[in-house]
Amino acid sequence: MAKVVLEHIYKQYPSDNKPTIQDFHLEIHDKEFLVIVGPSGCGKSTTLRMIAGLEEISDGTVSIDDRTMNHVEPKDRNIAMVFQNHALYPHMTVYENIAFGLKMKKMDEKEIDQRVRHAAQMLDMESYLDQRPKTLSGGQHQRVALGRAMVREPELFLLDEPLSNLDATLRVHMRTEIRKLHQRLGTTTIYVTHDQTEAMTMGDRVVVMKDGVIQQVAIPNELYHHPANLFVARFMGSPTMNVLDGILSEEDGLLFFIAEGARWKIPAEKASSLREKGYIGKSIILGFRPEALQDEPESPSRPNTFKAEIEMMEHTGSEMTLYLKGVGRGGMTARVKSPSEYRLGSQLTLSVKMDQVYIFDKETEEAVV
């Protein structure tokens, strides 16, 4: 197994004005399943390729178990990598595909056979060993690629968006299979994806990246409930977080968030922190998850309300997502139970659970409360 340390890693291509990766600094624990997530072009795959030795590091140090790897050839790093494109050999059987790397190393035939059959058993592919890739499903292709990596018995697994080419149902199934495999093998694993659901369901810890910079590193629950900034808050969660620009106003000792169509009271605990940090009278960004909205009549006990019109509805079984207009320039989403009385174009009065709101600095977009 392996501990991986990336110390102030930079990647600068000659044709670019700024680094693709900037000051990536992180320790990945032995046996950890770490997920790197972010939008396309954020540098997550480039980071993985630098760990593998497939990309040269412009500055900084990559070490595995206290051994510096910057100038070690990929083949000498004891790493196994699985890509989005599984690249199976079509003329070879499943057995031959899994065994190929070991045969290239001229390993003993008996040892190869033991490793291949053990991997096939763990991946439930024993009955497919004599078949060729063209007869297999997408999920089975993925398992063969994993088996080919497993038999090498590496210190480190690197997986670069391995499920992107699978359909939605199979993707969910393979997420579970990969996690089960990690639990059995205990091999340190770094997994790259653009899918925040994959990141939240698979990672022991998650690294969120944007424009080559780490935004936050945390366990999934912390990312969702305690985002470091507005980007993390909106990227992690589906549907995305609702946000409003407004001003903090103090009236009779109480603090209110004022925006177009909204005058909402800030809870005492949050208000105290905002006062201490000097945000009274300043512009801020207020965010809240779709589930922080309640469809309830306006009343003295529900002062933080607003009116909205239903523009679109998405049924998801026991719940429904409502896309609303009426507050905020970009509209809002609400996650509610799924009764039949909701109709397109109908007017709702909704209340915001103010104890569940997030407040961000207007200039820096960093979390304030």
Rank of each mutant, 00 (worst) to 15 (best):
E314Q: 11
I9D: 09
S273Q: 08
K265I: 15
Q114R: 15
V352R: 05
M125I: 13
I57L: 07
F157P: 06
G203M: 06
R302D: 08
M50K: 04
A149I: 13
K75M: 14
H91N: 10
R115W: 10
D16P: 00
L248E: 00
D361L: 10
Y358R: 00
M1G: 11
A334N: 03
I64V: 14
T20L: 13
I258H: 07
N304Q: 12
L156D: 00
L254S: 13
A308W: 00
Y128R: 09
L350I: 09
D30Y: 07
L344E: 10
M236I: 14
R143H: 13
R205C: 08
T47A: 09
I359E: 06
Q131R: 14
Q215D: 02
A2G: 05
M174H: 07
Q84R: 11
I258Q: 13
A334F: 03
G328Y: 03
H25K: 12
E260Y: 09
E341N: 09
P14E: 14
G345F: 01
L185C: 12
G278D: 09
A228W: 04
Y279Q: 06
N304L: 01
M354S: 11
M104K: 07
A80E: 00
H225W: 14
P162K: 00
P267M: 03
S301E: 13
P239H: 15
A2Q: 02
P133N: 04
G53T: 08
K134H: 09
I28A: 01
Q12K: 15
H29N: 15
N229S: 14
R275I: 00
L348Q: 01
I190K: 05
E314A: 13
A168R: 09
A2E: 03
L344R: 10
D16H: 13
A308E: 00
L54W: 11
H141D: 06
L230P: 02
H194F: 10
K75L: 10
E198Q: 12
M202L: 15
K210M: 07
Y128Q: 08
G330A: 11
G43V: 01
T169R: 11
V207S: 08
S45Y: 10
V144Q: 01
L102Y: 04
P290E: 02
E341Q: 11
M209R: 02
I36D: 02
D204H: 09
R263N: 12
M313E: 15
F360W: 02
E7L: 06
Q347I: 00
S346F: 04
L170Y: 08
D124E: 15
Q356S: 10
G53Q: 00
G278V: 07
I310V: 14
V172D: 01
I98S: 02
G60P: 00
E269P: 03
H225Y: 10
T349F: 00
G246V: 07
R234A: 03
Y13H: 13
T68M: 15
L181M: 13
R49S: 11
I359K: 04
K282F: 10
I214T: 01
G281E: 04
Y358S: 05
L350K: 06
K11G: 00
K134N: 13
N304F: 00
E298H: 12
M50S: 14
M122H: 14
E126V: 15
S338N: 15
E32G: 10
S346M: 01
N229M: 10
A168C: 08
M125Y: 01
V336M: 11
L136G: 08
G331H: 03
M332I: 02
L324H: 01
L322V: 07
L146P: 06
I359A: 08
I219F: 04
